[in-house]
Amino acid sequence: MMKGQKNHYEASFKLLAVELSYERSNISELAREIGIKASLLYKWRKDYQEYGFNSFPGKGNLKLTVEQDRIVELEKRLKDAELARDILKKSNQHFL
Rank of each mutant, 00 (worst) to 15 (best):
D86A: 15
S21M: 08
E10A: 13
L83R: 14
L83D: 13
G35V: 03
A38L: 00
L64N: 05
K6Q: 07
M2W: 11
W44P: 06
A38M: 02
Q5Y: 10
R77L: 13
Y42R: 01
E75K: 15
E29A: 09
D47F: 05
E73I: 12
Y48S: 04
G60K: 05
S25P: 06
G52M: 04
F13M: 11
K79L: 15
L41F: 09
R85W: 04
F13V: 10
H8G: 04
N7E: 13
L96S: 05
G35R: 01
H94P: 09
V66L: 12
S21D: 07
S25N: 09
S12G: 11
D80Y: 13
R85N: 05
L20F: 06
L62R: 09
E75P: 13
F56P: 02
A81L: 12
L74M: 03
G52I: 04
Y51T: 02
F95C: 05
E67W: 02
S12L: 14
D80V: 12
G58A: 03
A38C: 03
M1I: 12
N61S: 15
K63M: 10
L96W: 02
G58L: 04
R32C: 06
A11L: 05
P57F: 14
L64V: 06
R45W: 05
L40S: 14
N54Y: 12
D86G: 07
P57E: 13
E29L: 12
G58P: 03
R85F: 07
L83C: 10
N54T: 11
S25I: 06
E82R: 12
P57K: 14
G35H: 03
Q49T: 04
D47C: 02
L96N: 04
F13P: 07
Y48C: 00
K14H: 03
L16E: 14
I34S: 00
Q49W: 00
D69Q: 14
F53K: 11
E67V: 02
S25K: 11
I71E: 09
L20G: 05
Q49H: 02
S91K: 15
S12R: 15
A38Q: 07
A81M: 11
E33P: 03
S12E: 15
Q68Y: 02
N7A: 14
N7Y: 13
Y9P: 05
Y9K: 07
M2A: 14
L30Y: 12
S39Y: 01
G58Q: 05
K79C: 13
L40F: 10
F13E: 09
S12K: 15
S39L: 03
I71K: 09
T65Q: 09
I34M: 01
R45Q: 12
R70F: 06
A38R: 04
D80N: 15
K46A: 05
P57T: 14
E67Q: 04
G52D: 06
E73S: 13
Y51V: 01
L30K: 10
K6L: 10
L74E: 06
K3S: 12
S28H: 01
R32S: 08
F53C: 06
Q68T: 01
L88Y: 03
L62C: 02
E10P: 04
G58H: 03
G52C: 04
S39P: 00
S12D: 15
V18D: 01
D47M: 02
E10R: 10
H94Q: 13
L16S: 11
S21A: 14
A38V: 04
Q68R: 03
K14G: 00
K76V: 07
